[in-house]
Amino acid sequence: IRLYEREDYRGQMIEFTEDCSCLQDRFRFNEIHSLNVLEGSWVLYELSNYRGRQYLLMPGDYRRYQDWGATNARVGSLRRV
């Protein structure tokens, strides 16, 4: 999964292949505005340590956080399923 700091895949990008319990420890931002799921399925959590609202993401492109059903861009952790 590739996470981007801004909409439309702009700004700083980070790629994950494994679970991350605290996004801010690995990426200086806690807001993700766009992403690409390259393979497999992922769950994004609004808070760190896999807490808060959850969003199940299938392979595909998500140009804005609204595309995955979120009401804001906050992402605290993520897990591959």
Rank of each mutant, 00 (worst) to 15 (best):
A73G: 10
M13W: 04
R74L: 09
M58I: 07
Q12P: 09
Q12E: 05
D61K: 05
G76F: 01
R6H: 04
M58K: 13
L47A: 07
Y62F: 04
S21M: 03
L57R: 02
D25Y: 03
Y62H: 06
L47P: 00
R74N: 14
Q66I: 14
C22H: 06
R10L: 06
R79T: 04
A70D: 15
D67W: 06
N72P: 11
I14H: 03
L47Y: 03
D8F: 13
S48K: 09
Y55G: 10
G60N: 03
L3G: 04
R51V: 11
E7L: 08
S77C: 02
Y9A: 11
Q24P: 11
R63I: 14
W68Q: 02
W68V: 13
E5A: 06
V43H: 04
Q66S: 10
R28F: 03
C20W: 12
R64I: 07
N36T: 04
R10F: 11
D25G: 12
M13N: 07
N36W: 13
S41G: 13
I32R: 06
R64A: 08
R53Q: 13
S41F: 01
Y55V: 13
S41C: 01
E46K: 02
L56F: 14
R53W: 02
I14T: 08
L38V: 07
C20H: 05
L35S: 07
P59R: 05
R79S: 13
E7W: 12
V43N: 03
Y45M: 01
T71K: 09
L23G: 02
E15I: 08
R51S: 07
F16I: 06
G60S: 13
L56Q: 07
R53N: 15
S41K: 12
Q66T: 06
F29M: 01
L56D: 15
A73T: 14
N49H: 15
S34E: 00
A70R: 14
R28S: 11
R6Q: 06
M58E: 12
D8H: 05
Q66F: 09
G52T: 00
D67Y: 04
N72E: 11
Y45K: 00
D19W: 05
R74Q: 08
R51K: 07
P59F: 02
E15G: 06
G40W: 06
E39Q: 06
G11N: 05
D8N: 02
Q54C: 03
D19A: 04
V75I: 03
A73D: 14
Q12M: 13
R10N: 13
R51P: 00
Y62C: 15
R79N: 02
L44C: 05
G52P: 01
S41N: 03
S34W: 00
R26P: 13
L38K: 04
I1C: 10
R6I: 07
G76M: 14
S34K: 00
H33C: 09
T71A: 11
W68A: 12
S34C: 09
Y65C: 04
H33N: 06
R28K: 15
R10I: 13
E7T: 14
